[in-house]
Simulated assay, not measured.
Amino acid sequence: MEETEHKAINHRKLSKATITKRGILIFLGAVLMAVGLEIFLVPNQVIDGGIVGISIILSHLTGWKLGLFLFTLNVPFFYVGYKLIGKTFAISTLFGVTVLAISTTLLHPVPVLTHDPLLASVFGGMILGIGVGIVIRYGGSLDGTEVLAILFQKKSPFSVGEIIMFFNLFILGSAGFVFGWDRAMYSLIAYFIAFKTIDITIQGIDESKSVWIISENYYVLGEAIIARLGRGVTYLNGEGAFTGDDKKVIFCVITRLEEAKLKSIVEEIDPNAFLAVANIAEVRGGRFKKRDIH
């Protein structure tokens, strides 16, 4: 019994079909983001938030390729993402950012579809948001801002969402000095549309999510979540309304970047488990902070 549980807790390799599906969708998401940037936003001097926004500003000031900055500035976050979230996330992010950097370079000579900054902000923000949402939904990221915010949150009184908001307000404000204040305002429109589109694409953009799992293999699942996600779990006593049987309910809180990995763990150990995931507006106190994964 102990040997079986130990094998279940340890990381198992993803199937080729799962890896292929994830790779194709992350590739598609990264290309869509590149289209939103190079065909709509960048030619109209409208920027996005995060590392992408910094990359657009630096590319404009230096004349160097946007893809170079997108890749270089995200490099440190591959390692940080590996330590905070896991190997699968880091590899998925590396692949997504590489595709994004190459795609922006290849799309750079393509003629833009509109020179109207409002249309560019709306449609560029939508396409960019869909791309980012797809990548996040399938376990990766195209911007190191969220990883950076999770890291800073451990040593600050601010939430991940608040840190991201402050960071992006600074970047979007900087666009006013570089491109003009009208472009900064268009950038705010594009950022808001992208933000809401990501929300729709991944069905919930809140950084924290509560997870409820009912499974006969509750102990193995709980230990796997602790070992592979570094998240604490709580076992609650429950009773089936129809059967009257005693049941154990697993409760834990994760970040939205960890949702794909948690679902993978549950699917791997108990495909028949009941799983419910809900958005949380705020998390304070307790043992929500992540444990180090060795």
Score class of each variant (00 low, 15 high):
E2C: 10
E3Y: 15
E3D: 14
A8H: 09
N10E: 12
S15H: 09
A17W: 13
K21C: 09
R22G: 08
L25F: 15
V31K: 06
V35R: 04
L37M: 14
N44V: 06
Q45F: 14
I56H: 06
L58I: 08
S59D: 07
G67T: 07
L68E: 09
L68A: 11
L73K: 01
F77H: 05
G81D: 02
K83F: 08
G86V: 11
T88P: 15
F89Q: 07
S92G: 15
T93V: 08
T93Y: 15
L94K: 12
F95G: 13
A101P: 13
I102Q: 08
L106V: 08
L113E: 03
T114S: 14
P117Y: 04
L118N: 10
L119D: 07
L119Q: 07
S121N: 05
S121I: 06
F123H: 03
F123R: 03
M126S: 04
I127R: 01
L128M: 08
G129A: 01
G131F: 04
V132Q: 04
V132E: 02
I134S: 02
I134M: 03
I136E: 01
G139A: 09
G140D: 04
S141H: 14
L142D: 04
L142Y: 14
V147F: 09
L148I: 10
I150P: 11
L151N: 13
F152N: 10
K154D: 04
S156R: 08
P157A: 13
F158C: 12
G161S: 15
M165Y: 11
I171K: 01
G176A: 14
V178T: 09
G180Q: 12
D182W: 15
S187D: 05
L188F: 15
Y191R: 00
F195H: 12
F195M: 05
T197D: 01
I198T: 00
D199K: 01
I200H: 13
T201G: 10
Q203F: 13
K209E: 03
S210Y: 04
S210F: 05
V211D: 00
I214D: 00
E216D: 13
Y218V: 05
Y219H: 07
Y219C: 08
L221V: 02
A224G: 07
I226M: 08
A227H: 11
A227Y: 11
A227L: 04
A227W: 05
R228L: 12
L229Y: 12
V233S: 00
Y235I: 01
L236C: 01
N237I: 02
F242E: 06
G244F: 04
D246Y: 14
C252Q: 01
I254Q: 09
T255V: 10
E259K: 10
K261Y: 15
L262P: 15
L262W: 11
I265P: 12
V266A: 02
E268H: 15
I269S: 13
D270H: 06
A273P: 12
A273T: 03
A273E: 04
F274M: 07
F274Y: 12
A276H: 12
A276N: 15
I280E: 09
F288N: 03
F288L: 03
F288Y: 08
K290A: 03
